[in-house]
Computed example of a mutant assay.
Amino acid sequence: MLFRPPTVAQMNQWKERLNFSGTQMARILGLKSARRWREYADENKQQGIPPANLFMGAALVTLPQPDIDRVLATMREIGATIDLDADPESSAPSGEPQP
């Protein structure tokens, strides 16, 4: 797989097009907090968003809700615990932090 992450400027342009806050960007990208989003959006760091996080964000803003629900159901069938609306600091039933 070849993956080159979008630049910080491109990520910030996407955020602006979506008219999202840092908290909303963190949520769709599966990040723990808006602070983590700000690290990815910092011109001085240039660390690049991982492909899985970018894929998740793109899927959540592109796919119809029934398709998202099907993917989440498959993740749960595999054994994941996932709640997109839960507080990122909450724990899964096993006591392990949720991804």
Rank of each mutant, 00 (worst) to 15 (best):
L2K: 05
L2N: 13
F3C: 07
F3W: 15
F3L: 03
R4Q: 14
R4G: 07
P5R: 00
P5F: 10
P5V: 06
P6A: 11
P6C: 04
P6W: 04
A9W: 10
A9E: 14
A9P: 00
A9K: 08
M11N: 00
N12W: 02
Q13S: 06
W14R: 11
K15V: 01
E16N: 07
R17P: 02
R17Y: 09
L18P: 01
N19C: 05
F20M: 14
S21E: 02
G22L: 09
Q24S: 11
M25H: 01
R27M: 09
R27Y: 02
I28G: 03
L29N: 12
G30A: 09
G30T: 08
S33C: 06
S33M: 06
A34S: 10
A34G: 14
W37T: 09
W37Y: 11
R38V: 07
E39M: 10
E39C: 08
D42G: 11
D42F: 11
E43S: 11
N44I: 12
N44H: 13
Q47V: 15
G48A: 04
G48S: 02
G48P: 06
I49A: 00
P50S: 01
P51R: 12
A52V: 09
A52T: 09
N53R: 12
L54Y: 10
F55R: 09
F55K: 03
M56Q: 14
M56N: 05
M56F: 12
G57W: 03
G57P: 05
T62Y: 04
T62D: 04
T62P: 03
L63Q: 01
Q65S: 07
Q65N: 05
P66D: 08
P66R: 01
I68Q: 02
I68P: 00
D69W: 00
D69Y: 00
D69F: 02
R70C: 06
R70P: 02
V71F: 07
L72G: 00
R76Y: 01
R76P: 06
E77D: 08
E77K: 12
E77M: 14
A80W: 12
T81R: 03
I82Y: 07
I82A: 07
D83Q: 11
D83A: 14
D83N: 15
D85P: 04
A86M: 08
D87F: 04
P88H: 05
E89G: 13
S90Q: 15
S90V: 13
S90E: 14
S91V: 14
S91G: 12
A92L: 12
S94I: 13
S94G: 15
G95D: 10
E96Y: 08
E96C: 12
E96G: 08
P97L: 11
P97E: 05
P97V: 13
Q98D: 07
